[in-house]
Write a protein that binds this DNA or RNA. Structure first.
Lengths: 197, 197
DNA sequence: CATAACTGCAACAGTGATGTTCCATTTAGT
DNA sequence: ACTAAATGGAACATCACTGTTGCAGTTATG
């Protein structure tokens, strides 16, 4: 949790108020950019309640700011994956848990999440790969348990999983509790729209 | 198929070569903007093989150009829906047919399709609503036939359908034949990843 | 409290996109 | 072949965003 020090080599500890500024800017950038990805630094600064120069003080340029956002989101995703215990917990439990928590992240950081999962971003790419791997591992375990068809293309299943998560936060249901949304996502992932027994 | 005349009130028929320019620009814009949504008019002009001034002659501004693209895509979607006969053909047949054809459109016009289905675009909104309605009608027929669970939220199913189409054109499978992709999409929509009997 | 860090504000130069105009040349239509 | 339309190219003004600097005032921290 430090500002310009991340981007440049020098890592001098920030003062408490500067740290608060960094948080404000990151959160404001998320709010603004999720509505208008082409918004100016000034709009972000205004939304953060700071001067434009302060934004430039903390982040060398737009790219640095965006990278800080994606890095933050990737960190949250790592935590979420840890909490879900995808390699030890029962697959269905882990699937629910992880889905709900990822949804929580995605609801708060839709713009940064979109970048991580669509953009060919260099710094976030390795983090995404890590998440992808653990997700695939979980799906493999689910397949071994008979939850997923033995001949299924797990890469396709994973991408469908991501797409469903992305879709769940849209529309009129985004204000539902993440657990309810996760229920719907996992259910759709495993059974589609088919009639239930 | 006319250029600036669409946007403004005057509708004077374009000469043949001007018509060709309009097409070149629209297709070039799709190519360029699908890679970089923030590309300049000059990059689009270059990709179209025309001068920048020609682009401005045919489209008053960026917005007019983008709206022409979305309008074109919506027109294609309308044709696709007609061809699929969603209100008369057997639901499963129509679902396959429409999916395959929409995929064909989406592969060629990913940027414009993205705008139509995510952006709150005014001119394209009514066209999208028309497509949405016919899609919902088809899903209702599929549900009546027992292909879809009786208690399913068809609005959610429709959004999942769109998301699956969007996902099918990504990744390493985008070069597959649209029919094979459609097979996968419809199968996943109806049955998810569950084991098959 | 004394210092160092942080902030807001104003000003500045640089950049790149935009939109327009004019004109010489080429091209389509009839 | 004649006319009207279309094009390329250059030039121009405008504008918004960017990134930087300097300074005076405020705030955290030891």
């Amino acid at each position: 949790m430090c500002g310009k020090g991340d981007t440049l080599g020098t890592t001098r500890p920030l003062r408490a108020d500067a740290e608060r500024s960094v948080r404000s800017i990151l959160e404001a950038a998320e709010r603004v950019l999720s509505v208008n990805p082409g918004a100016s630094m000034e709009q972000i600064a205004e939304a953060a309640g700071v001067a434009r120069t302060t934004v430039h003080r903390r982040f060398a340029n737009r790219q640095a700011l965006v990278e800080a956002m994606t890095a933050d989101v990737v960190r949250q995703l790592d935590e979420v994956m840890d909490a879900g215990r995808p390699e030890t917990a029962p697959p269905l439990v882990a699937l629910h848990e992880i889905t709900a928590n990822v949804l929580r992240v995605k609801i708060g950081w839709p713009f940064a999440m979109g970048l991580v999962f669509t953009g060919a971003d260099s710094p976030a790419a390795e983090g995404k790969r890590r998440v992808d791997d653990r997700c695939l591992l979980l799906l493999r375990r689910a397949r071994a348990d008979g939850l997923i068809d033995a001949s299924a293309d797990l890469d396709w299943v994973r991408r469908v999983f991501y797409a469903l998560i992305g879709e769940a936060v849209h529309g009129p249901d985004s204000d539902l509790e993440p657990d309810a949304l996760a229920q719907r996502v996992v259910d759709t992932l495993l059974h589609g729209a088919s009639p239930r027994g």
